[in-house]
Design a protein around this nucleic acid. Sequence first.
RNA 1: UCCGGCGUAGCUCAAUAGGCAGAGCGGGUGGCUGUUAACCACUAGGUUGUAGGUUCGAGUCCUACCGCCGGAGCCA
Length: 430
Amino acid sequence: MGWVYVNEISNYDGKEVTLKGWLYNKRSSGKIWFLIFRDGTGFIQCVVSRSDTDEKTFQLYDELGQESSIIVHGIVHQDRRAPGGYEVIVKKIDVVQAVHDYPIALKEHGIDFLMDHRHLWLRSPKQVAILRIRHTVIKACRDFFDSHGFILADTPIFTPTACEGTTTLFETDYFGRKAYLTQSGQLYSEATAAALGKVYCFGPTFRAEKSKTRRHLTEFWMVEPEVAYYDLDDNMKLAEEFVSYVVQTVLKERKKELEVLERDISLLEKVEPPFPRITYSEAVEILKENGIDFEWGNDFGGADETVISNQFEKPVMIHRFPAKVKAFYMKRDPENEELALGVDVLAPEGYGEIIGGGQREENYEILRKRIKEFGLSEEVFKWYLDLRKFGSVPHSGFGMGVERAVAWICGLKHIRETIPFPRTIYRLEP
RNA sequence: UCCGGCGUAGCUCAAUAGGCAGAGCGGGUGGCUGUUAACCACUAGGUUGUAGGUUCGAGUCCUACCGCCGGAGCCA
């Protein structure tokens, strides 16, 4: 029998197979030894005993250290004693590379050491589970929009100026002039939405803010839908359906991985529309009821978000923020000029903001005024203002931080494990 | 940038009140035919982040610097 992967091993009970992968761990009991084999699709115990294998293979115990690359030939065998229910009775092992000094032992390690060895840490079961879930989250995002009539329209990474003029951007030399790495594709998506109706962009995003918290990376991925003729309510409906679809897809397709992560999925199972909707003012009331001294008009901090989201089992949507804490392009509430038609979605369990979005200002003169008020250059936003000059329509959208969503779904304390190679303020390697 | 914490063997951590630098894991050697981060015995492994200072004596106290971690602000 030919090469098979661990995740399809149950189809080969009693058959002879070949597995290609790596040695995860080994245990010896003298005349019998066990190796835990991994190939990227799963882990399986293999049994090497004098009675079933040749002497040369049996002697390999001493040669093979953790993460040696090996090809195992043996017979698949259902056995209750094996983790996973199946094991392989080894007939022969081909050594691709014997390793003796793998740095990551099977025990607890400090985060600094693990991050220095991120390229190897990725091989451990929890990291593999997280990256599989990340894959499913990303695929679910795309499937959702693709099946709802959205067109993927990529937005540029190099931008001539700050999109919102608020955060610090990474500056690069662009053939002698300054260019910045994008902090959001939104403004460009507004242009593609006017061309295609319903669009989304999905790409890396960069923030040079010196944020040092478990919720921040300097490089992260965002998925940002934008829809022409959507108002704030349409937008919120889209957001709750979208988030629910992503969570339910992970629950359906990644049960094993969530078990590896020991994630309590009872709250995730409740993530279905409708989500609770509260106004900013109602959120402020919640804070006051919980004894927090909070002044109307400020933006919520991380601790505030946790208190608010703890009032709900599902993600909560907070809308109608004070306009002055939101970006210049936010449309004002016709019923109260002080409020912006923005919405944030806070994940439960203290995971904080996973989505920010809102309805955009579509009026040419008002938007021009806002650009001035925010001290931005009208020249730079000339193209953006054009969108309000030629067939302007109400439109809305939002952005979801992929890593924050993955951290929440996986139940991770820190966002850095949700991306293969995290970039934080003081870490550029590996 | 600000505030706080940490830095001891390859790794995770101990080390009374300033008084002989230690354990587990990993490595090495030997033992064991059903192990589950296997176990048992033995063994090697150290410029205590760096530079100064206080002291008879500093891993421990003081100063500066470096590195990392967390939080604030900002945000997804």
